[in-house]
Design a protein around this nucleic acid. Structure first.
Lengths: 221, 221
DNA sequence: TAGATTGTTAATCGATTAACAATC
DNA sequence: TAGATTGTTAATCGATTAACAATC
């Protein structure tokens, strides 16, 4: 049990999110108790890593036994802040925006989409989800602040990413998830995550072009 | 100039991809030569980091001067393997799949979508891009191997992610980019990248819930 | 108790940053 | 040459892994 102002590695947070996923699947299979060994096998992380990750936040297991699947899931959700609802808005309802609006996981994980915006006049008023109608960008600041949106998702083209982020900040969101291929800048008090789909692909291309048929550089075990 | 069997950090590869992006933008602005200082400012990476990243692959700059914008861009593309065309197939033409098929960057970065598949009979035959018609999953192995697809993109639901990956492996792809919220398993000789959009959101939620306003997370136990 | 598995510390490994000699 | 900026080495910082005492 720690919990000072110790810095938690970002990688740990990322893994915690995947632990939830794996724990839920194990629970579905009827696994009421999991060891770090089993969970590690299930989500491809070493048992030591799992125990270390959890130890940043407290003691959740029973020595000699393991972790109660359901309660560990809940504990991790609390750690990640998924025990409360995050009002979220999305800007840019192209295909990607649409994909996120429909993303089932979204609803299941404590996020609530309270508004969606687009600059295309032809899209305004379209119902994308039950009760969710696309609004014009001009309404962003007004609507998002009224709805107390905490998170803004940016799925506009690179060229309007910065101006969109600016509007979201003006509307009072506390965090921005940016999918546009442009690293936006926001004030220090706003939390920002840039997601680069192209980088992921490029990473794959790199790995492929440097993997000679017989060479083995980076083996995981 | 190094280039032995030195291990390149994954973070370096990720950054190289963003360097290309920034370099192209700087070039558009008429910047023919950039210093690591300027490029760093532009893509929010420290100058030392940039020089270190590049030094893994060779010497691309001129001391006292900087880097030629255009040629550095090209050099990085070669490093990442973006100087050749990667035939790619996509499985699962939902909103996310659609988003990727239309992603302009895709074409611009040396990937060529050679086929798209979906299990929904209602979608078969639909033209999603110029000359690209959705094919049934049953045709995956045949078509993908005939087209010599090197990369497979998985945008199916979690429940069919593993079976889709299996088919792609059977079809002979060398790398898989998986967007489904399920960590698939593939043979050692296949390069795999899992992209978790939910993890990104969860990461944001964590950062937000541990920031000032809701400071107090008292530990019991 | 004996066996199992956690939580934690210490050792290892890896990545970033700082500093500076090389050199245009 | 003087000024600028790279490429690289060494120092620092951070994350992962291994090992084991604690304990159910």
């Amino acid at each position: 049990m720690k919990q000072k102002d110790i810095k938690i590695p970002e990688a740990t947070i990322k893994r915690l999110s995947t632990y939830i996923n794996c724990l839920e699947r194990l629970d579905d299979k009827g696994c009421q108790v999991v060891s770090s060994e089993l969970l590690g096998e299930s989500c491809q992380v070493s048992p030591a890593q799992i125990r270390k990750d959890l130890s940043y936040f407290g003691e959740f297991g029973v020595r000699g036994v393991g972790y109660a699947t359901k309660s560990l899931t809940e504990e991790i959700k609390v750690i990640l802040g998924l025990d409360c609802i995050w009002p979220t808005v999305l800007v840019g309802v192209g295909h990607l925006g649409h994909a996120l609006l429909n993303f089932t996981f979204f609803r299941e994980h404590g996020y609530r989409m309270v508004a969606a915006f687009d600059s295309d006049p032809g899209k305004i008023g379209t119902e994308v989800e039950e009760g969710l109608h696309i609004q014009p960008i001009e309404k962003l600041v007004e609507t998002a602040s009224r709805e107390k949106a905490a998170i803004g998702i940016v799925t506009v083209p690179a060229s309007s990413a910065q101006s969109t982020a600016d509007l979201l900040v003006e509307a009072g969101v506390r965090g921005i998830l940016n999918f546009a291929p442009f690293k936006v800048r926001v004030p220090d008090n706003i939390t920002l995550r840039n997601v680069s789909i192209v980088s992921e692909l490029d990473n794959l291309a790199y790995l492929l072009s440097n993997k000679k048929p017989r060479r083995r550089l980076k083996k995981k075990k």
